[in-house]
Amino acid sequence: MTASLPLPSALRLQVLHRLFGEHHGWLLGRLRARLGCAHDAADIASETFTQVVALEDPGAIREPRALLTTIAKRLVYASWRRRDLERAYLEALAQQPEAVQPSAEETVLALEALTAIDQLLDGLSPKARAAFLYSQLEGLTYAEIASRLGVSVTRVHQYVVKGLTTCYLALEPA
């Protein structure tokens, strides 16, 4: 979520108010058509405008609808990713022995952590992602990873370097 919002001056407030008035309904309509769910559309539209509110200079926006569309697309994609992760988590959980079923709260925390990691790994190819995770989470040797993925050990090394680089850069403090 956004950190601290800049204090609104009267003019800034006016600009934001107009942006909202002129474009929120439009964005909501588009999202409803695309997502087929009014609830999700409302959430995404609201979050989109939260991000707009946090911008440095809303008055400088030349193409509001293009900007809103870009932000909304990113949010829609992120929300789909979260759903995919949740489903994958529940499936993986189902394969665990009964004894380790987590509480609801633990699940929420786990999903948050997993979503954060998933975002870190954004941009890695599926094999690079797999190689990196086998190494990072389970400490498998590259020989073992290589045989699982059907690639050479050298390739695994490259994947891990790629994974480490991607994570390291993504974790750069803002």
């Binding site: 380790v100 786990a110 995770l133 086998y134 990072q136 974790l171």
Partner: peptide
Amino acid sequence: RLDSAFAGVAEQPAGLARNTLLSAGT
């Protein structure tokens, strides 16, 4: 940086985090 990023999944049962992240990835 790596430790702090992956601390959240350190306590999870072996394979749970990995399976989740891998299957979601595809």
